Structures are given as structure tokens and as C-alpha cells.
Amino acid sequence: MKRIDIYRTSPELYDAMMALSSASAKDVDVELGELIKIRASQINHCAFCLDMHTRDARKHGVSEQKLDVLAAWEEAAQLFTERERAALALTEAITELGDGHVPDEVYQRAARVFSERELGQLIALAVTINAWNRINVAARVQPPGRR
């Protein structure tokens, strides 16, 4: 079944999401931001965002090894910094909300290694990529064809 071209039919949605994306990424390390976006997109099965953000991550210097094991980052913890591990744990908790909340220990782990400003931005970034993922998955937005 063909889905709507949501960004064509609702351009104000696209504009609002772009504004939110820009605001949430402000002052976030670009490589860390890409890891957050990719991890949430893996969980949400958003092919469009995975395609976009893995390419962006490579452009910004994220190693192929990190990208290769990101879905199992806890098993390859030595490849990721403490800040990356805390951000990824927080991203997963925000994305999955299995118990209806972000566990205190996950939040505290992130709060120990990020300033309040950084923590707020990371939360906003994780929420924003989740919104993009859900819109794209619902509308079945596809990645561009083979390059």
C-alpha cells in the first residue's frame, strides 16, 4: 500500500521538525549526536534515518568499527567513551520506555558525565530522532536508491 508523502502534504511539519532538530543538536558533539541518532533509529527500524545518519557519521569521523558494533555497544564497551556509553544508555531508555520511564540509574549515569545543559540537549536530541523515526516509519519514507 502506498503511503502519503508526509513532508509534501504537511510542509509545516517538516519545517517544525527541522527547527527542533537544529535546537536539540545545538552544543552536542557531532560524533556523539550521530551515535545517538543511529542507535535510536536501529531500535525503531527506521531505514531512512539509518541510511542518512550512518553516512553523516562517517563524514564526521566516526570509525567503521564503532558503527559496526553500535547495536551491541554494551558488549563492545571498550570502544566507546564513558560519555558515549552514558548517552547511548539514556537514548535506549528514552526510545524504549519499557517501564514507562527512564530508570534513575540510567539518568544518574548520564548526569555524572554531562552538564545540565548537555544532559538537556541529549534528552532533546533523543526525543527528536525518535519523532523523526516514528514519522518516517509510519509514512514508510524510504532511503534514496543505491548510490
Results as ranks from 00 to 15, higher is better:
75 E>Y: 05
75 E>L: 11
77 A>I: 00
77 A>M: 01
77 A>R: 03
77 A>H: 01
78 Q>H: 14
78 Q>K: 05
78 Q>L: 09
80 F>W: 04
80 F>E: 05
80 F>L: 00
81 T>M: 03
82 E>W: 06
82 E>Q: 15
82 E>R: 06
82 E>V: 12
82 E>S: 11
82 E>I: 15
83 R>M: 04
83 R>L: 08
83 R>D: 03
84 E>H: 07
84 E>L: 04
84 E>V: 11
85 R>W: 02
85 R>E: 00
85 R>Q: 08
89 A>M: 01
89 A>P: 02
89 A>N: 09
89 A>Y: 01
90 L>T: 12
90 L>V: 13
90 L>A: 10
91 T>N: 06
91 T>S: 10
92 E>I: 02
93 A>Y: 04
94 I>R: 01
95 T>H: 02
95 T>P: 06
96 E>Y: 05
96 E>R: 14
96 E>G: 10
97 L>M: 15
99 D>H: 09
99 D>Q: 14
99 D>K: 15
100 G>L: 03
101 H>Q: 13
101 H>K: 14
102 V>K: 08
102 V>R: 10
102 V>M: 04
102 V>I: 15
103 P>R: 09
103 P>V: 12
104 D>C: 09
105 E>P: 00
105 E>K: 10
106 V>Y: 01
106 V>H: 00
106 V>F: 02
107 Y>P: 01
107 Y>V: 09
107 Y>M: 13
108 Q>L: 14
108 Q>C: 03
108 Q>I: 00
109 R>T: 12
109 R>M: 12
109 R>E: 13
110 A>K: 08
110 A>V: 06
111 A>R: 15
111 A>L: 03
112 R>K: 15
112 R>D: 12
112 R>W: 01
113 V>F: 08
113 V>L: 10
113 V>W: 05
113 V>N: 10
114 F>Y: 13
114 F>C: 13
115 S>V: 12
115 S>I: 09
115 S>A: 09
116 E>G: 13
116 E>D: 15
116 E>C: 02
117 R>W: 12
118 E>L: 14
118 E>F: 11
119 L>E: 10
119 L>S: 07
120 G>W: 13
120 G>R: 14
120 G>H: 15
122 L>D: 06
122 L>M: 14
122 L>H: 05
122 L>Y: 00
123 I>Y: 05
123 I>S: 12
